[in-house]
Amino acid sequence: MSTAVDAVRDAFRELAAGNFVLPPRQIFGDGTVLVMSAYHTPTGTAVVKKIGIALDQVPAIRATVIWTGSGEQLVADGGSITTLRTGAVVGVATDLLAHANASRLALIGTGAQAPDQVRAVLAVRRIADVTVTGRSADRAAALARQLGDEFPDVKFTAGTNIDEAIAVTDIICCATSSTTPLFSVDALPDTVHVNAIGAFRPTMRELPRDLLATASTVLVDQREAALEESGEIMDAVTSGVLSEGDLVELGAALSTPPTPQGRTVFKSVGVGAQDWAIAAALARS
């Protein structure tokens, strides 16, 4: 995960420098099929990812990634790359916005994306306590045991009460397919960093509107993508509580880091440069 975080961080610096061609994501069947691509101009390398999404199945995401460059081609499981790169970008954002002494993490969601969310935060902060919450107590407990075996020096607990989990935490990771906000802004600590990666359709929501209205920083992977695909961001902008200019792009923030205060948010819908970063790292290995 540390290697992935570094690769994705470098890719967003390249994106901010104008070194990627990123065609708009193609969306078919109301978001059940996605095609993403990215071309890295300096190296002449490219990646294409085809994703099939079925939220009622396990795994929910089935994908294939093809990376090409210098006469070589790499074909890899897109599901693994998607979870890894989505975790990695959360690591990059958390490193920018979470308090340096953050030690408590609350994870909301127990699906395929969830473990790499935890791995990414642990790669950039010295986390001592992690609370895993989900609709199923059994799944939350199973994930907590799995991660506890992987990180024996971290205390993992499991439950289904989101408000209790987030009441005394420093960092929150949301990785669900919810269509309604997972919590109210009143349930949050005064100082907390929130990552949200689950909602990728205009009809989906993980974050309350009031959080986006009052957060000191609202960070996105790419403004254009967030305004087209993030239900929370689209709702906040349409309702007038947030303007497009309030959205800070990750690549720009890496050059000019914001000074986080109070509550901060990172909303990711994913861009092709992330897939390129992981596939290029694989090709080099």
Rank of each mutant, 00 (worst) to 15 (best):
V5A: 01
D6Q: 15
D10K: 12
A11L: 03
E14A: 15
L15D: 02
L15M: 02
A16D: 13
G18R: 08
G18L: 11
P23I: 03
L34W: 12
M36V: 07
M36W: 07
A38W: 05
G44K: 00
T45N: 15
K50E: 15
G52V: 13
G52D: 10
I53F: 06
D56H: 15
D56T: 14
T64N: 15
T64H: 14
V65Q: 08
W67A: 15
E72R: 15
Q73F: 14
A76K: 04
D77C: 10
G78D: 06
G78A: 12
G78P: 00
G79N: 02
T83E: 11
R85P: 00
T86E: 05
G87L: 07
G91L: 08
G91W: 04
T94Q: 09
A98L: 06
H99W: 10
N101F: 02
R104H: 11
A106G: 12
G111A: 13
G111Q: 04
G111L: 03
L122W: 10
L122Q: 13
D129K: 14
D129N: 13
V130M: 07
T131D: 09
T133E: 01
A142P: 00
R145E: 00
Q146G: 01
L147S: 01
T160K: 11
I162L: 07
I162R: 05
E164D: 15
I166T: 05
A167N: 12
A175K: 13
A175M: 06
S177K: 14
T180I: 10
L182P: 09
L182S: 09
F183D: 03
V185I: 14
D186Q: 04
V192P: 01
H193M: 02
N195M: 05
P202T: 13
M204Y: 08
E206Q: 00
L207D: 08
P208V: 11
R209S: 12
L212P: 06
A213P: 02
V220S: 04
S239H: 10
E244C: 08
D246W: 07
D246V: 08
L247A: 02
L250M: 03
L250T: 09
A252S: 04
P258L: 07
V271T: 05
A273S: 08
A273K: 00
Q274H: 02
D275H: 12
I278Y: 14
A281H: 13
L282A: 14
